[in-house]
Design a protein around this nucleic acid. Structure first.
Ligand SMILES: [Zn+2]
Ligand SMILES: [Zn+2]
Ligand SMILES: [Zn+2]
Ligand SMILES: [Zn+2]
Lengths: 153, 153
DNA sequence: ACTGAGACTGAGACTGAGTCTCAGTCTGGC
DNA sequence: GCCAGACTGAGACTCAGTCTCAGTCTCAGT
């Protein structure tokens, strides 16, 4: 967590920006979790924690953190962005459960190697890979089996 | 194209719905292209073609077409959905150029096999794979090289 | 043909994520 | 202290997408 503060401060300084109190509040909240979260989650969390920061400032700070590569944005087709620490295992893939919305992760270096190779074959210069597998998590799959069995029996 | 009409009609009949004129207009426009398009693209296209269909009906019809698996939705983090024919090569991946927004495709069966294996290892029941590679297309990469060279020279 | 249930439509109100504006405040260098 | 310019929160705004509703159409049953 010290690292992130350092990197953020450096980035701000380089752009003649300041590490103000609201930005620090957001920074701590962001790096105090290891989940995938949305801007709204964060705003609500700060509200509950008694350290509210305005929507505009939260969005502005999230943008700054993405710009300096401390955060990565993800989109699961819900019309809102999810954020996660860029320092977590790089270029991992996501399993998104369409039934309950749970997000889990996996990492397989072969997948990344393959993507890199494919992109370059097409003359494409890859910056970020995003592998998302939509379907049903183990729990929800089990629930379905039970429900379907009940419907038949 | 006849196939799609047939499938759609079957789906509608099964749900006591009708293939009305507006739905047919949308159907023809959708299967008259092979691009990735947004709802707004489609609405504008129908407008220009002199066969306008209301926003609500376009969205409703796109939902129906997705439900009966004639269309697939994609999200590239632009806050809007892109659609494409499900009949195009299944489970292909996308290369999205962050500079110009161009979308191109690739297909590699190894990628799909790997994803399926990974998902099942996690007890996850995959329904759809979505591999997106963000970066710069060949043209934009070349443009950058030229521009950067100019800046230095 | 007539009728009623219920499907269909377009206009436009609404929602919700995210952006922008602006007036007032804070910061840091002089 | 003074000033340029960065920062903030409130709330207006945008834009994709959804919902509502009153009026229309369809079709099976008569
Ligand atoms: Zn689940
Ligand atoms: Zn993740
Ligand atoms: Zn490009
Ligand atoms: Zn495609």
């Amino acid at each position: 967590m010290g690292d992130e503060v350092q990197i953020f401060e450096d980035y701000l300084r380089k752009h003649s920006l300041h590490l103000t109190a609201p930005r620090e509040t957001v920074l701590h909240a962001v790096f105090g979790t290891h989940e995938h979260f949305t801007a709204d989650d964060l705003i609500a969390h700060l509200q509950r924690a008694g350290t509210p920061v305005s929507k505009a400032t939260v969005y502005r700070t999230l943008s700054l953190l993405s710009e300096c590569s401390l955060l990565i944005e993800h989109d699961f087709g819900q019309g809102k962005k999810y954020y996660e620490h860029a320092s977590e295992l790089q270029h991992h893939g996501h399993l998104y459960c369409s039934d309950c919305g749970r997000i889990s992760e996996f990492y397989d270096p072969r997948l990344n190697a393959l993507q890199d190779k494919i992109a370059r074959q097409e003359g494409f210069e890859p910056v970020q890979f995003a592998v998302k597998i939509y379907g049903r998590c183990a729990d929800c799959a089990a629930k379905r089996v039970r429900r379907d069995a009940g419907a038949i029996g």
